[in-house]
Design a protein around this nucleic acid. Sequence first.
DNA 1: AAGTCGGGGCG
DNA 2: CGCCCAGACTT
Length: 410
Amino acid sequence: MTHRSRTKSSAGAAPGAPLVAKTTMGASTLPDDAALLAAQLSRWFAGAARDLPWRHDRTPYRVWLSEVMLQQTRVAVVVDYFARFTARFPDVGALAAASEDDVLGLWSGLGYYSRGRNLHKAARVVVDEHGGRFPSTRDGLRALPGVGDYTSAAIASLAFGESAAVVDGNVHRVLMRLCADDTAIDTPAGQRATTARATALVTATSSPATVNEGLMELGALVCAPRAPSCGACPWRRSCRAHDAGAPEDYPVKARRPARRALRVAAVVLVDEAGHLWLERRASRGLFGGLWEPPGTVVPDDAGDAAATAATTEATTEAWRGLLVARGLTAPSTWPPAVVVQRTLTHRDLRFDVVVVPLPADAARALRPLDSGELDGRWLARGALGAVGTSTAVRAVLEAALGPPGSPRLL
DNA sequence: AAGTCGGGGCG
DNA sequence: CGCCCAGACTT
């Protein structure tokens, strides 16, 4: 049922039809001359390209910043973040001079926060080891933190004119459809197949940057994941998936990551001035480097994070533990939990939250857990932007305290 | 080669 | 409610 029907050309093929000539061509072969395809694509791109902020002034810094932001992230979301980053950090030196908290504060809400941490690291590498200038080759760029196969090719091509082929989700989709190739793209074989085809295209043109951007733009505007606009495609007559009438059968993906439940008990500690106690998460892993109220994972016996509406004993015990571990006294009875649920790609998050107002002396005595790395600080609600916070934590605070600016408490 | 890492918009 | 998005990194 979840399988989409796949049209096989062999079913209706008449005896003696020239099937052999087609199927004996190598799987990585393009259906038409590479130079011709590249020219058609470039012509289309010249007339169809969107006016995007990072296409204006193609410095390596702006190309790099935009490409990192665009990893697994839609263009519409990136536009505003790109504007804020370039305004606050006009060049790589400004970014390197900032603190990681500053960078993550501006990155908050964009997701995949290792990108933000690596962005900051890479800026410092560029300044400290390359005199403030980006490496000008793909291999040099590839050595920067957070710059992988795709991003190194993108910067090398778009900012330096190198004929390196970019392979992202758009390119996979466009080229697997063009060739009606059912090799799974999330495998080394699929990666090799698309890279070979894209390389053939950028090698056959004098403007590899245009072909690279054209491939991605075609995937974004015409060769969409669902309901592609084949009538507007410059490659319509060459496209084998279109021939078969089944463009949406491609690309094939092998992996289906399962979503696991994660239940968290958290305490929102508020002092008499209305400041919040936040602690910094470890640098690696989920929400790495971001700040949040003290919390801990609660084993969910049911296996279903949404099963229990009422506060469980495991949750109140977790709340008590969070307070005691920080030298605070836990109340004998608890109010009902404020429950916040968020769905990520690979997680079902459920927060059971309680607000704990602290008298001045208790607030002063509060210290982060002395496990070493765990940092903690009091922060005004309106100063949250000074550090990185996840959208989940912002939702937790809003649910527990009310909308920012009109504190329900104090 | 498989697992991990956000968040939101869309059909 | 499942899928996808200008992927990279770890194990």
